[in-house]
Structures are given as C-alpha cells and as structure tokens.
C-alpha cells in the first residue's frame, strides 16, 4: 500500500461563536478560502464550537486580517488530514 502524505491545514479557534463568524465573514470578503468546522476536542479548552480551517499558505494574511479587525483569535494549530 502506498504511503499517503498528510495534507496540512491550519485551524483558528475563537472564544465566542460571534468572533468565529466575524472572522469567517472577513476572510470570505477578502477572498481567502475558509471553512467552518467543529472545534476538535484536543483544542477545545475555553473555545467555542466553531473553528475556521484555512490553507497554510494563507495563514499570514489571515492573521493580519483578523488582527486588523480586532478579532480575538485564541488558538492556532497546524493539523493534517488525508
């Protein structure tokens, strides 16, 4: 069986659903691909149930955009799936 490589992505976590959705709105408006996913329990301490998944190449822009709008990002982790 061939060894498949994990495809990395970045998850951003937020304390309130409002902040998660505000962030999603900002990214969509800026044209950065984003999807709302359930917050993994490995990361859940103090976070709301919605996390945002983005491509690693976009992470600098995402950080800058969210900081610009004063949106409170509480967690950022790199994860991977197939």
């Amino acid at each position: 069986m061939s060894q498949r490589k994990l495809r990395p992505y970045i998850l951003f976590g937020f304390v309130t659903t409002h902040d998660a959705l505000a962030a999603e709105e900002v990214l969509k408006k800026t044209g950065i691909p984003v999807s709302a996913v359930p917050t993994p329990s490995s990361l859940a301490g103090g976070l709301c149930g919605i996390a945002l998944r983005i491509e690693p190449v976009d992470s600098d822009r995402v950080r800058a955009q969210l900081a610009d709008r004063g949106i409170d990002v509480r967690a950022e982790v790199e994860m991977g799936d197939f």
Binding site: V15, T16, T17, H18, D19, T39, S41, L43, A44, G45, G46, L47, C48, G49, I50, D72
Partner: peptide
C-alpha cells in the same frame, strides 16, 4: 456552547 463547557465560570467575553 462550545468547548468552554468544562469551566464552571461564565466566559467573560461578550455576547456569550
């Protein structure tokens, strides 16, 4: 809601 459920304190953030 969300993953703050283990804490018995209300989150200080608005609007939650």
């Amino acid at each position: 809601g969300g993953g703050s459920s283990e804490s018995l304190e209300m989150p200080p953030e608005r609007p939650d």
